[in-house]
Simulated assay, not measured.
Amino acid sequence: MATRTVAIQLIRAAIAPAAARGLDVGYVLREAGIPAALIGEDAARVTEDQAARVIQVLWSVTGDEMVGLGPMVIPRGTFRMVTLGLIHTPDLRTALRRLIQFVGIGVGFEVTERAGEATTTRMVVAPGGGTRADQVVGAIGIVVGHRFASWLIGREIPLRAVELPEPAPPHSDYPSVFGLVPDFDAPAASIAFDSSFLDAPVVRDEEELVAFLRNLPGALLFRQDYHPSTSSRVRRMVERRPAPDLLTVEDVARPLNVSAQHLRRLLRDEGTTFREIKEDVLRDAAIAALARGHETVDELSGRLGFSEPSAFRRAFRRWTGSPPGAYRLAQG
């Protein structure tokens, strides 16, 4: 049941430049198995595989690694060439400085490294030429930079702060993406982290890089649990159960060697609850199953532990704003 989904806002933002150019975004969505009607539903979600497929098809039809989201076209193969220039650096400090040089020369963004407190480094990503900062574009930029930096040194770099331009959206995955809630209405997108990571050695080689590049965009866009949080540990435990709704907080607290009360407190500190995690797992499993189309709604309802299909239908509409049948359209 270990399936993750992403908010429709990522898909909406990704296809918008192609639509503005008159390209056939209906074809892009069909190739990814996403019903076009979901694009207008704010609470809709798609699987990570579907989201990755959207980006891959957009790469093909636009010839742009930023799929039109950036201030200039980035030819296919640019990211590969940039990363080949980083893989042989001795440490993260050198890699980031070289990345800043590459980005400034040919990507159309301005990336700056700013010392914060004595122990904090802040990386700022902004569009070049004084272009207005866009929240989704900025978020993608800092996600890609953070994930690749973590991959280079073989361990996650915990973030101390994240800033994004524009107001907070009503539906987003930002807390799970970054591991914390960002501050919004900032002049540009930025991340802050412990400066000690700058001295971490680069531990990857070209062979590993080639394998990493084969897994794009998923390897960069979707969360990798190098340093699992309490909520991610709980989620993995819930995902392993065939009927998550029957699982209690005591069932999960016991193998974690904490009390149920303490577990609730830890989850609350991370901005979630045990019930929300269970609902997220059920929602994501339901969306993935509906996209595959191998089960009837009644069969899916029973497998997920619902007492009757009508209860599942009500829950699904609460989760996504749509009935299960809207996701069946993904099968054509």
Rank of each mutant, 00 (worst) to 15 (best):
V46Y: 01
V46F: 02
V46T: 02
T47A: 00
T47V: 06
E48H: 08
D49T: 04
Q50A: 12
A51M: 15
A51S: 15
A52Q: 13
R53E: 14
R53L: 10
R53G: 00
I55V: 15
Q56G: 03
Q56P: 02
Q56L: 12
V57H: 05
V57M: 12
V57K: 05
V57A: 11
L58S: 03
W59T: 01
W59L: 07
S60E: 14
G63E: 08
G63Q: 12
D64K: 10
E65W: 07
M66I: 05
M66A: 15
M66T: 13
V67K: 07
V67W: 09
V67F: 15
V67R: 06
V67M: 14
G68M: 13
L69T: 08
L69F: 04
G70F: 00
G70Q: 00
P71Y: 03
M72H: 04
M72N: 02
M72R: 14
M72Y: 00
V73Y: 00
V73M: 04
I74P: 08
I74T: 15
P75Y: 09
P75C: 09
P75K: 13
G77K: 12
G77D: 13
T78V: 09
F79E: 06
F79I: 11
F79M: 11
V82K: 08
V82S: 07
T83P: 00
L84C: 05
L84H: 14
G85K: 08
L86G: 12
I87A: 05
H88V: 08
H88M: 10
H88N: 10
T89I: 05
T89E: 06
T89A: 10
D91I: 04
L92I: 04
R93G: 09
R93M: 08
R93F: 08
R93S: 12
T94K: 10
L96T: 06
R97F: 02
R97S: 03
R97G: 09
R97N: 08
R98T: 14
R98H: 11
L99E: 13
I100E: 08
Q101I: 05
Q101H: 11
F102G: 07
F102W: 10
V103L: 06
V103H: 09
G104D: 13
I105Y: 11
I105W: 07
G106T: 06
G106Y: 03
G108A: 02
G108L: 02
F109E: 04
E110Q: 03
E110G: 03
E113Q: 13
E113L: 13
R114M: 09
R114T: 15
A115Y: 11
A115K: 15
A115F: 11
A115I: 15
G116Q: 05
G116Y: 01
G116I: 01
G116K: 03
E117W: 00
A118M: 09
A118Q: 14
T119G: 07
T120V: 14
T120F: 01
R122H: 04
R122Y: 00
R122C: 06
R122G: 00
M123P: 00
V125G: 00
V125Y: 00
V125R: 01
A126P: 04
A126D: 06
G128V: 01
G128F: 01
G129H: 06
G130P: 01
G130S: 06
T131H: 07
T131L: 14
R132L: 05
A133V: 02
A133K: 06
